[in-house]
């Protein structure tokens, strides 16, 4: 887990941040470092949303065992998100179904939304980050 610096959002501005996860874990570093962004933004008391689309849905699949590749598993950090008041997690239904997954396959509670709703969500945001 990244070190959370003592941060204060002195501006008082609350923006809608979306972390758009579209890449699978481990093969590239993007998923891990997006997770670090998510945790830091919690310290700024922003309105944080996390979305999983395309291969991003693989990030929260249950049963990840990374011992054999000597990389840190993301799952404990995802489980900890609730403790940071990050509870707006969305999975796109079409992406999930394309990959043969169901909501029971995920490690954290998520809201499953269809592509149209995901599109609405993206279009309602102030800042979209991710990879």
């Amino acid at each position: 887990m990244p070190e959370i610096e003592a941060l204060e959002n002195t501006s008082g501005v609350i923006k809608k941040f979306l972390y758009l996860n579209s890449k699978a874990p481990y093969g590239t570093v993007y998923a891990l470092e997006v997770l670090e962004m998510i945790l830091i933004s919690a310290a700024f008391e922003q309105d944080v949303h996390v979305a999983f689309v395309d291969d991003g849905v693989y990030q929260i699949k249950k049963g990840q065992d990374t011992k054999g590749i000597e990389m840190k598993s993301f799952l404990p950090t995802y489980r900890a998100l609730e403790g940071y008041d990050i509870e707006k997690l969305y999975v796109e239904k079409e992406s999930m179904e394309e990959r043969g997954l169901t909501v029971e396959d995920f490690i954290v509670p998520v809201t499953v939304v269809n592509r149209l709703t995901m599109s609405d969500l993206i279009h309602s945001m102030d800042v979209v980050l991710g990879g």
Binding site: N9, S11, F17, M37, I40, V127, L129
Partner: peptide
């Protein structure tokens, strides 16, 4: 720190990646 990125997102009208 990474907080500087989040702060830039808060303070800027547009964040371009």
């Amino acid at each position: 720190g990474l907080g500087q990125l989040i702060e830039a997102g808060i303070q800027s009208d547009r964040l371009v990646m």
